[in-house]
Design a protein around this nucleic acid. Structure first.
Lengths: 349, 349
DNA sequence: TCAGCTTCTCGAAACGTTTCGATCGCTAAG
DNA sequence: CTTAGCGATCGAAACGTTTCGAGAAGCTGA
């Protein structure tokens, strides 16, 4: 009871190996009649080509590598995880599988992902901030690369990026529109292009409005604990903000914890808005306003672009900016208006 | 500038293909001197065997399949995702890659995962509740299988399970210990073995304590929205609970939203505890007590067991029950004691 | 009529490994 | 002194595809 091979199909259909192969791959010239007969045998035998054999002969693996730093991977905040899931989902449509691997975080030595050594991937997705050395190293294996949520200035790589500037504009304009005037920025890890862009966006709108900047970017990471410290920093200066735009939701969460601990009321005394729109936003009390980032969508686009690069052999560099969306929840409600019962289950997605 | 093959290593070292292969796979009899020489050439050339060729010749893929229903996959609650990440992490230690695929949820027709058709995996991990037909179908491909967080009564499969009963005992005993007396159970999807066991555990402790059962299991799913309805149901009966044990955190979250909306104070009027200990618990207000499930650990164990089965060719059925842990937060604080400022950043992990 | 396409099919050569005997010299057991 | 067994190495045969080049047959236009 062995599995049928392409030989069996050839023998039973009366055609040669090569012709069967052409039919299976839907390539070259094959008469309709021949195709029909061969497919009939394929169906009857339940034949399906074997990946390894196909890979060996055609020098393709049918896999795509996904590289993530250990930091991002182990982070509780499921941001990159969502992007990864998006790639997983989309890759099915192109008959690829995703091989995930983590690499030591920025600064450490480079460890070559095994899937590159084994020629086990046809292209690579790199998500988040990684060392440039690593990117160049991956490149040296001659596979197409696409970056997600990261950019390299010196050299142009295809990338899928968040429209951070637009998002920051939305957030800050929203805070201004609700009547706030002293608007702070809760930042950290300012080296990350995404964070830097959010800060720029903030600055642009603040400048335009004639208000004063109120910025904290001393923290080196953008986790919840850093948000706590950053908010503390911001709160104990001369000017107290009546609204804060956080570089991401994790920081906003930490910031909210600090404010609650101080007995500051949200949104009555201070409005708060984050960035990313992670799931947690909805269950917080008050629910956290945020800039929605379509994380799964970013993963999907990355796969589409990468498959383009793999199949078309094109070397064109394509940068895609994925739009964002303002999601208003109770944490940034206008001061005057009744906010509604806190903790009410939000109807928005 | 081609990559070196095993041929190159053989030629340059002066030994045969077979001997080089033996050295690379660390198998069979090779003298220390020969090994040294060959490894020297391997190092010098930067040789690394190609997966496809190896796979073809040895009939192994070096991959492990991970099957998840679409429901579980797209669920916001990152429970199975964490298990998946655990498998990802552990698989590196065994030089395997994980291929994730989703299947239509229970009830639909069976769609054979492509990695099985292509002989692209050496074993399969199935997570969560799936149809028995699917399991049998996967089995028919002759690869080892391990279930995670699911059991089949009729037939014994190796499985990695949560110690749900013990968890339920911990939760309910904890509620009793804090002075609560009318303890409710917020359930749903009672067909799921894990949920059923949590209910059983609840019942056992309640019976032992001489109190009365107060159970809602009408809901068919265990999402947040169902928790909202189930709590509503429980709340509007004759006896009002002063503590509730929810079948999982998602339901507890929904329940909490309902209670807040009613103006019920937590934990003063009612204590609440969930199950799973998802990340969200910590940022809720009040932070939600829960039974911690070591999700990544479950994934790791699954990989270890599966690799055992793949390499040792053993057919022994091994069931592992992963212990759980009680995590007390403000939502289940005793009535008398001062709870501390709400929303205070919890120091526990 | 003939050269030059196009359509269709096939044989054979890769692709880069593992694995299965076979051989050979040496040592230990009988 | 045999003989069995082990350590070390090798040649050759898989493993199951894709791909390349060639050839036959039919059609088209000059």
């Amino acid at each position: 009871m062995k599995r049928p091979t392409i030989d069996d199909v050839a023998r039973q259909s009366g055609f040669s190996l090569s012709t069967v192969s052409l039919v299976i791959n839907d390539r070259g010239y094959v008469s309709a009649e021949t195709r029909r007969k061969i497919l009939e045998v394929v169906g009857r035998l339940g034949y399906h080509p074997t990946r390894s054999a196909r890979g060996l002969a055609s020098r393709t693996s049918g896999n795509v590598g996904f590289i993530l730093t250990e930091d991002h991977f182990s982070q509780a905040e499921p941001f990159y995880t969502r992007i990864f899931l998006g790639t997983e989902f989309e890759s099915r449509n192109f008959h690829y599988y995703i091989l995930l691997t983590t690499v030591p975080s920025v600064g450490s030595h480079i460890e070559t992902p095994r899937f590159l050594l084994e020629r086990h991937v046809d292209g690579v997705i790199i998500a988040g901030k990684v060392s440039h050395k690593l990117i160049e190293h991956v490149e040296s294996f001659g596979v197409p690369i696409i970056l997600v949520d990261y950019e390299v200035k010196r050299r142009r790589y295809s990338a899928v990026l968040i429209d951070n500037r637009a998002g920051a504009h939305l957030a800050v304009r929203h805070l201004l529109a609700t009547g706030r005037s002293a608007i702070g920025f809760l930042g950290g890890d300012i080296d990350h292009p995404s964070i830097a862009e959010r800060l720029e966006g903030y600055r642009e709108v603040i400048a335009e409005s004639g208000k004063e900047e109120l910025i904290s970017t001393a923290e080196t990471e953008t986790r919840s604990a850093n948000g706590f410290s950053a908010m503390q920093d911001l709160w104990n200066r001369g000017v107290r903000p009546d609204a804060v735009f956080a570089a991401n939701d994790a920081m906003a969460i930490g910031g909210m914890q600090f404010l609650k601990q101080q007995g500051v009321r949200i949104p009555e005394d201070i409005a708060l808005i984050g960035f990313d729109d992670i799931d947690t936003c909805r269950v917080m009390d008050p629910p956290l306003s945020s800039i929605r980032v379509f994380k799964e969508e970013m993963g999907r686009i990355a796969v589409q672009r990468l498959v383009d690069m793999i199949t078309a052999k094109t070397t064109t560099v394509v940068t895609t900016h994925v739009p964002v969306e303002l999601v208003v929840r109770a944490s940034s409600a206008p001061i005057e208006v009744d906010v509604g019962a806190p903790g009410q289950p939000s109807l928005q997605a």
